[in-house]
Design a protein around this nucleic acid. Structure first.
Lengths: 361, 361
DNA sequence: TTGAAAGCGCTAACAT
DNA sequence: ATGTTAGCGCTTTCAA
C-alpha cells in the first residue's frame, strides 16, 4: 500500500502538517533540522509518494496539460512532443495527448477535459481545415471555466484572447527559396498549404519576398495551395506540370507533401534534381530516406514545444484578470537549411545570382 | 465557475447524495421520476461537470491510463493509438502518452506516475533494446502499489505476472514470405529485428516455416538481425549484398527498415523490383510514397490497441488477488497482404510453385 | 517551531 | 425515496 502523509507523520512522531511542509520544501517551513531529518527519514523508509488526486482536489490544479495536434504520428511532431514533454516534466506536469479531429462540433473532447478539470490547460494545434469559428467556440467554452484554465495555440491562431507560439514561417520559406536562387534557379514554383491553414500565408509571403528580391518572376501557374499531405503534394506537382512552361525547381511548404512530390515526380518521369529541384519546409528522419534524399529547412520545433508549455504554465500561474497572453514566434535557433540530394543547379547550368559568400549556410 | 454537486442540489432542492446518485445513473438510484427530472434540469442549467479530482480521490481510481511506446511518432503506431484512444473513451478513461526511453534506470517515469497515482495502469511497449531485467524491475515496482495498478505489455513480454497483447508475428511473416514464393522466388533473404526484440523470433519463425514448406533453402548469409529502423535496414541490405550470391527477394521484418532498404538499394544501383523484390511487415501511409511503393503486410494494430485497453481495464476492475492476466494474440482481422510495386516475379521468369488459386489474396 | 482543524468535490454506507 | 455523514489525501490558515 502506498504510504500517506499521516503514515509518515505517525512514523516520525509529528503532525501531518509538519510533514506536508517539509516535503513540499516550502520556504515557510521553518523546522528544526532534527525534525526535518526525522521526517525525511520516515518518508524515505515508507517510500512516500504524494497522491496527486488529493493534491489536485485541494489546490484545484491537476498539473496535467493536454497536447492536441492534428496527427500524433506525423514525424514532424516528434521534436515538438519532446519539447513539450521535457518542459512539462521540468514543471512537474504531465501531458495528455489528443487528436484535433476529436475536437468536433458540440461536445468537443477538449471542453470535456477542461470542464471535468482533468487538465489545467491545453496546447492546441488546430487542423488546417479548422475554421476561426471553431477556435472562437472553443475559446468561449474554456473561458467559461472561470479563467482557471487556459489554451495556448501552437502554429495556429494569433489572437489577443489567447496566448500562442508559432514558427518563423516567413523566414523558413525565405531560406528555402534563397537556397534555390543561390543555385541559379529563377523558374521556381511554390506548393503551399490549404488557404485555411494558419501557416499558409506567411510561408507564401516568404517565398514571394525572396523571389522579388532576386528579381525572379512569380508565376501563378506554378503556385498551388493544395495542402500538406503527401497525396496533396502529388496532386500539386501534377497540376503545375500540366500547364505549359515548367519550373526548374519548387519549394514545397511541407515535408510530407514533398514526399508526395518526389513520388509523383517519379511516376511522371521527372528527374530530381537534374530536371527539377525540390526543397521542403520541416525536417524529420523520413527526409533522409526518400529518393533522392530531400533537402529541407529545419524548424525549431523542440523549442516551440518548450515555449508553448512555459507560456501555458505561466498563464495558469497568473490570476485570470492580469493574465499576459503573449504571441510568440520562436526564432532561436533560426531555420536551418539542410542540403541533401534533391537540389542541384538548373539544367542550363549554374548562374550564381547573388552573394558568393553564401548566405544560405 | 464550475458548478459542484452541492450547487446542483441547492438548485434542485434536494440533497447532494440524491444528485450524485441520479447523475451517476446508479442502478440503485430509485428516485421519483419527478425528482430525477428536477435534478437533471438543474444540472443542465448549471452546466454541471463532475470534478475528476474529487472522484479520483474518493474512488482511488484516476481513470487515466498511460500508453508508453518507444517512439510516439512512428507512423506504425498511428492505428495502435487510435485503438487505444477509442477504447479508452468508451470506458471513460483518458490516456497519457510517454516514451519508453524515459523508462530509464532507477526512478523510471512509469514508477513515478503509478506511485503518485496519476495513472491507474500502463500499456507498455518495451524498446527493442530493453532487457527482460528492465521489465522485471518495473513489474516489481508496480506490484508494490498493492496491486491497485496493473501493466499490460504490448508486443513485448509474455509473462504470467502481467497481461499482454501481441500481434500475430509468425503468421504475418509467413504471409509475406508466401507472397514471394508465389511469385516464383526461392532465393529469399530475411532482414529481421534485433535479437533482443520481442517480436524477432516469431517473425523469423514464420519466414522459416514457409521456406521449409516450399522447399526453398534458407541461407544464413541472407539473414540479418540488425533492427527495425531505416538506417538498420540500409545496413542490412548492404551486408547481404556484399556476400557472394544474392537473393532475388527479401522480406523485411519492419516497414521503416524497408524504407531504408529501398533507399540503400537505390544507392547501390539495385533495381527494385526487377532485380530485387521486397515485402515489409506493417503498413502505414509512408508505404504508398516510397519509390517504388512498398508491398506490405498489414497488421491489426487498431484492434491490438483496443484489446490492450480492454485487458488493462478488466484487470483493474478485478481485485488484485483474483486477477486474470491473459496473454492475447490478436488475429482478427488476419494479417493482410497489400501488393504494391516493390514486388515482381524473379528475373529468370515466374515459376509458379504453389497453388494457382492464389492463397496470397 | 509545531499542531489542530477545515475543507477541496465526490461516493457510499447508513439512517430515516 | 431521500437525506446525513464520514472520509479519500492533501494544503493552509490559525492557534499554541
Amino acid at each position: 500500500m502506498t504510504a500517506t502523509l499521516s503514515d509518515v507523520a505517525a512514523r516520525a512522531g509529528v503532525s501531518i502538517s509538519a510533514v506536508s511542509r517539509v516535503l513540499a520544501n516550502a520556504p515557510s517551513a521553518r523546522v528544526r533540522p532534527e525534525t526535518r531529518e526525522r521526517i525525511e527519514q520516515a518518508a524515505q523508509e515508507l517510500g512516500y509518494r504524494p497522491n496527486y488526486a488529493g493534491r489536485a482536489l485541494k489546490l484545484a490544479r491537476s498539473r496535467v496539460l493536454a497536447l492536441v495536434v492534428p496527427d500524433v504520428t506525423n514525424a514532424i511532431f516528434s521534436e515538438l512532443m519532446r519539447g513539450v514533454e521535457d518542459a512539462a516534466i521540468d514543471h512537474d506536469h504531465v501531458v495528455l495527448l489528443g487528436r484535433s479531429e476529436d475536437m468536433q462540433p458540440g461536445g468537443s473532447m477538449i471542453t470535456k477535459l477542461v470542464g471535468e478539470r482533468r487538465v489545467d490547460g491545453v496546447l492546441l494545434q488546430l487542423r488546417d481545415e479548422a475554421s476561426r469559428a471553431d477556435a472562437a467556440a472553443l475559446l468561449r467554452d474554456t473561458e467559461q471555466q472561470g479563467g482557471r484554465s487556459a489554451v495556448v495555440f501552437i502554429n495556429s491562431l494569433q489572437d489577443r484572447r489567447a496566448g500562442s507560439v508559432s514558427l518563423p514561417d516567413e523566414e523558413a520559406a525565405a531560406v528555402a527559396t534563397r537556397a534555390l536562387i543561390d543555385l541559379g534557379h529563377t523558374a521556381i514554383g511554390y506548393l503551399g498549404g490549404l488557404p485555411t491553414a494558419f501557416t499558409a500565408q506567411d510561408r507564401q509571403d516568404g517565398f514571394r519576398r525572396v523571389m522579388a528580391e532576386a528579381g525572379a518572376p512569380v508565376r501563378s501557374s506554378w503556385m498551388t495551395d493544395l495542402g500538406y499531405t503527401a497525396d496533396q503534394g502529388r496532386r500539386a506537382l501534377r497540376r503545375i506540370w500540366s500547364r505549359g512552361r515548367r519550373p526548374t525547381a519548387v519549394v514545397v511548404a511541407n515535408l510530407n507533401a514533398a514526399i508526395g512530390v518526389l513520388a509523383e515526380a517519379r511516376s511522371l518521369g521527372i528527374a530530381v534534381p537534374s530536371e527539377l529541384s525540390v526543397v521542403a519546409l520541416h525536417d524529420a528522419w523520413t527526409a533522409e530516406h526518400t529518393a533522392p534524399a530531400l533537402s529541407t529547412v529545419r524548424m525549431p520545433l523542440y523549442e516551440l514545444g518548450r515555449a508553448a508549455v512555459e507560456q501555458l504554465i505561466s498563464e495558469l500561474d497568473q490570476s485570470a484578470r492580469r493574465r499576459r497572453r503573449r504571441n510568440l514566434v520562436i526564432t532561436d535557433p533560426r531555420p536551418e537549411l539542410i542540403m541533401r540530394d534533391s537540389t542541384a543547379v538548373p539544367r542550363g547550368g549554374a548562374v550564381p545570382t547573388s552573394d558568393p559568400e553564401g548566405r544560405t549556410r
